[in-house]
Write a protein that binds this DNA or RNA. Sequence first.
DNA 1: TCTGGGGTCCTAGGACCC
DNA 2: TCTGGGGTCCTAGGACCC
Length: 430
Amino acid sequence: MRRLALIDCNNFYVSCEQAFNPALRNRPVVVLSNNDGCVVSRSAEAKQAGIPMGIPYFQVRKQLASIDGAVLSSNYVLYADMSRRAMRLIAEQFPEQEIYSIDECFVDLSGLSADQALIQAFKLKQHLMQCLSLPVSVGIGSTKTLAKLAASLAKRPGATGVANFSNPMSPERLAEMRQQPVGEIWGIGRRTTQSLEAANVLTVGDLLDKPVSWIRKRYSITLLRTVEELRGQDQLGLQAAAAPRQQIIASRSFGHPVYAKSELGEALATFVARAAERLRADHSLASIMQIYYNAKDPAADGDPCADAIILNLPHATDDTRLLIRQALRGLDEIYQPGLKYKKAGVVLGGIRSADIRQPGLTGLYPEAIAPSPIMKLMDHVNQRYGRDTVRIASMGVDAKAGWHMSCSRRSRRYTTALEELPVLSTQGIS
DNA sequence: TCTGGGGTCCTAGGACCC
DNA sequence: TCTGGGGTCCTAGGACCC
């Protein structure tokens, strides 16, 4: 019998912060998105105070201050490292693992009985708390969709943190599953929830009672697969090995508006460098690059405007230098003086394995055949001594340039930077 | 007056996820 | 004044091919 578990870190970003700073425990805490824009993670106390997920910070600043809430900028370096540690601990217990996101993974429990699975889930919870101070919820199910649904139950306030929707299910458990609102189901978002509710399909049970033909006629194959999964028929499988990405995006809203082409060029070159690092880490090449911007036009009452250009590269590449050259050429074509630039980005596409390199029919680009030793060296130095220790000159040298993000409330990189390690003294951790 | 059938590839847009 | 970033999959429609 197939049995899967979803392991989900509770309030992951906030929990990472609380792990290192006890003063943040048992009180309202939120972590903000890039540029301190929106609330993206909330402690239980912040949720209880009614702070919504995704709300712009400025709309809840006063409320947070009035309840003595702590507000933090995102510290992605810390979260990524904590994630890596948690995933490794989980894989030690359950080697069949699919890492689904920074704070979630699926594991295979097929060898275990339902009771054994529950016991193992509680043990794992305890283990992660002990090793990393990370609270997790575990949902068990015979498919990923059921495991997800179980996890959403498991993490409700007052719940035990573990829930099981895998067979054999008691009649009470089944009834509870069928009572869940459709909006709780993984893969059913806001729009589909609205549409289903309009058709008087309000719960999982309502949806399961609809004939396949009704679902297929009104919705896509995607929803049909979701329903099959809820019936216990596996449609999604466990993807143990991560497939290389098909698309790599690097983009940022600017800390301050940007006007000059040179500054926009520095920002774009930096985004290209980030994307190319990820490309090489995947052992991939890109053959298409898109660059784009969002801006406001002061000449038109500050109306928002945007433009983009798709660049077909002369050959598939992972070379930051070539990619930056092409990106700046693209910028020449879409840059408009006078606009107030708010955000820019780069998308790498046409991605394929770096095992096959070919220079194109013209033979004009012999360098396309072999990976660049300079890129390899650059990655190596930057991994060892820190990001951008070696960089391309067009990325600029001023780390305070206006386009860089603002993140004034970032905590320290406790686990990845020597000079920011926590210090233990008789007064506690500082 | 009569106007096929089957297929691929690409793109834009929508919906969803964390 | 201030509203994130990085992804996936599906669908419909157009261009093109034989």
